[in-house]
Each structure stands twice: as C-alpha cells, then as structure tokens.
Design a protein around this nucleic acid. Structure first.
Lengths: 107, 107
DNA sequence: CTGTATCCTGATAGATACTG
DNA sequence: CAGTATCTATCAGGATACAG
C-alpha cells in the first residue's frame, strides 16, 4: 500500500501501463494534478523501483517515464483494482459509465 | 483506494476473510493498533458496505464483524496485493519470510 | 519543458483518559 | 468488552512563485 497508496499513483501507473509517457503528457492526462504532486509521486514510484526515469539532455528538457519490469508485476493488482473501483463508483455514487473516466482520472 | 486505503484496512480485511471475528480478537491479531483506530477503520469499512457489524446485547458486550458478500468481491484484490507485498518486502527490506507476518500485521 | 522551494491547511493518526 | 472523547503531533497534499 505504501507503494501504490499515493493519491495519484494508481492513475499514473495505469497510464504508464499503456506505454512510456513524458512528464507533460502525464500532466495533460491528469488535469487535476499539480506539478509538485506529479513530480513527487513519480519520484516515489521511481525510488520504489516500479518506474524508470529517463532524462534526455536537450533544450527544452525531455523526461520519459516507463514502467520497469518489476513495476509490470503490479498489472494484476491494478487491473482488479480498476475493475472493482468502477463497480464501486457506479454502485455507491451512481455515476454512469460515460462519466467514469473523467471522474476517476481527474480526482 | 478510498475503501481499502486506510492504514489498517487491508490487514483487517485479510483477517475477516478467514472468518467472523470479535473486536477483541482483531485487537489481539493486530497488537500495534489502538482501540480508536480499530473502531474507526471498522466503521469506515462498514459504511462502505464491505463488512457487517453485529451487536449482541449482553454483558459484557460482544460485537462481531463479518465480511459482507460485497466485501468478498475484494478477495481478488487482497490476494494479489498480499502476494505482491510479500515479495516487495522481501526484496526491498530484506526481511526473511518468518518475520513477514509480524512485520506486516503489526505495522 | 521539467523541476524546486516555500508556505499553508486539512486530514490522519497516536496517546491518554473515561464510560456503560 | 467495546467504544467515546480530547488533545496533540504528524504528514500528505494544495497554492504559488521561481529556476535551469
């Protein structure tokens, strides 16, 4: 739970499951997150060994984040978590399915 | 994550998967938890509909907690979570397997 | 574009004492 | 036995400004 318990970590991980992403791509995928939180959560995921940070020395800067092989072992958890979470949100909050992505990914 | 994200919730749920437990049983199973936290986490799990609280009117009081049917749907998540967590602790903290239960359930 | 540095607030949790 | 009430400490997270 310490590894995936941060407010945005599961969301970040779900995005990275789909492939490598740049910092700004992640930011656009999660409009509700602040720059500070994004960096912070990414650093923690990195130091836990589940994602990798690749810096390209150029101007303007470019940084890519990728799921490590170890991080990929979280896929099962993420999947069952997302599945359960969707049902739960629909059940408890009565959100219809079209609003789910927005509801989940932005908050 | 809001449902299982509390500091002790996954531990409580893991115990309740094995069967109904009384308050004091849970307390003994988790030496590190305080009375306050135990009650609090149980109440939250209850209001999320994943556990059920049964009060027997007697002296001394007896209260039993059981996983609801809905709560049982968390079993997959809990399983994969525990599995991954064990590996992670061994890998990161170098804890040997005998110390795992103590390490996990008490902190 | 990516990231750091502050400052600040609310949530979370620990300790302790008390109640029916 | 099970739970409540306080009070306090800590921490995660938000807002904002700044930097290479």
């Amino acid at each position: 739970m310490e590894v995936i318990g941060g407010k945005w970590k599961v969301v970040i991980l779900c995005h990275l499951i789909l492939g490598t992403r740049r910092t700004n791509q992640l930011k656009k995928l999660m409009p509700g997150i602040t720059q500070k939180m994004l960096t912070q959560q990414l650093r923690e995921l990195e130091s836990d060994g589940v994602i990798e940070r690749k810096v390209y020395n150029q101007v303007p800067p470019m940084v890519e984040y990728t799921l490590t092989e170890y991080g990929s072992s979280l896929k099962d958890i993420l999947d069952s978590l997302c599945k359960w979470g969707e049902n739960h949100i629909v059940k408890v909050h009565g959100v219809n399915h079209d609003l789910l992505e927005e509801s989940i990914l932005n908050h």
